[in-house]
């Protein structure tokens, strides 16, 4: 789940049009870029898809932190393939958002000046190789929980981007789990790294689903518009229920003393993450917020001459071609 706390925008459109629009969504139709849509729907989607795209791009950084230190040639190749996929996901999502009338450059500026966000999870550092396992296993695992239902979202370009993305995400999660297996079954030092990674990433992964629905003011409208399919709590529960047996299989301990199977609900009872920490991270006070944005700002600034050069050359080519005709 790479989009959190998406505020749904109020809409001041013609009630008849709104009604017809809602009827299309209720009938399971896809909304396409040229179709009429309420301004609130458009704006909410831009924010949601944009945040998701930024998460893919910023999400390269914590993994890039270990590409140069990957311990085998095969691990290096797999991690490169994964990060390449993520940049690709960023690109499809920026393209999907562009169909709503906002350019990639504009979204990038909004990321850099803080008007747009990326997932809170990428503000946590990757400190050991086991973190590459934990990111794949837990972070991509949580992302899949959210993205699988979004394949059925009402906005056509977003749904189609999500179908492509989901195919690749399951490979990401498997490679993460595979790293964890090697670490958990490895030397004492590797085991210690694996447990430490789970300890650090467990609660931030639970935060990825956003605050509890009872505190989430934006869910209802987004769910009516089918740009959000499940509630935060449903997805979080599903994630915990899937992940706890995997941790047991690895012989690792989920850092939650209250964790217990609840026969009646058919799921685990578990402790809530520290929501004060979550809101702090969103405000900019996570361990890596400053570093992540500084890295993206530097990439943007250092890349300006390259982008300008490529554009200038393309314009010259176009002019030369036109003159030749």
């Amino acid at each position: 789940m790479y989009a959190q706390m998406i505020k749904s925008e109020a809409t001041a459109d013609d009630p008849d049009k709104l009604k017809a629009f809602q009827a299309r969504i209720d009938a399971g139709e896809k909304i396409e870029p040229k179709d009429w849509m309420p301004e609130g729907y458009r704006k909410t989607l831009i924010r949601q898809i944009g945040q998701h795209a930024h998460s893919e791009i910023v999400g390269q950084l914590p993994e890039g932190n270990w590409i140069t230190r990957a311990p085998t040639l095969e691990r290096k190749a797999i991690l490169l393939a994964k990060v390449q996929d993520e940049a690709g996901h960023g690109l499809y999502l920026y393209c999907a958002a562009e169909t709503l009338g906002v350019s990639r450059d504009e979204m990038t500026r909004m990321l850099l000046d803080g008007r747009m966000k990326y997932s809170s999870i990428f503000n946590y550092p990757t400190l050991t190789w086991a973190d590459m396992g934990a990111v794949g296993w837990l972070v991509d695992g949580a992302a899949i929980m959210n993205q699988v239902p979004l394949q059925r979202t009402s906005y056509g370009p977003y749904a189609r981007a999500m179908i492509r993305i989901c195919k690749e995400e399951s490979f990401h999660q498997r490679q993460g789990f595979d790293i964890m297996m090697k670490m958990a079954n490895g030397t004492p030092a590797q085991r210690r790294m694996a447990q430490d990674a789970l300890n650090r990433f467990w609660y931030p992964s639970l935060m990825m689903f956003g605050p509890s629905d009872k505190d989430s003011v934006h869910s209802t409208q987004s769910m009516r518009w089918r740009i959000k399919i499940n509630t935060n709590d449903e997805l979080r529960q599903k994630f915990v229920d899937q992940t706890v047996p995997q941790a047991e299989y690895l012989g690792l301990t989920v850092p939650d003393e209250t964790l217990a199977w609840n026969e009646e609900k058919g799921g685990y009872d578990f402790a809530e993450p520290d929501w004060a920490e979550f809101y702090g991270v969103l405000k900019g006070n996570g361990p890596c917020n400053t570093d992540r944005i500084a890295a993206r700002q530097k990439a943007w600034d250092d890349g300006t001459w390259v982008r300008d050069g490529l554009m200038a050359h393309a314009a010259k080519r176009k002019a030369a071609k036109a003159a030749a005709q």
Partner: peptide
Amino acid sequence: ISEWCGIAPAVEEDIALANTALDLIGQTQ
């Protein structure tokens, strides 16, 4: 080339550089 991960001038370049690095590491194997 893999040192460029996540900091290339544009997303297209991030993809292309990762792809080149991936090819080269595959050849290395």
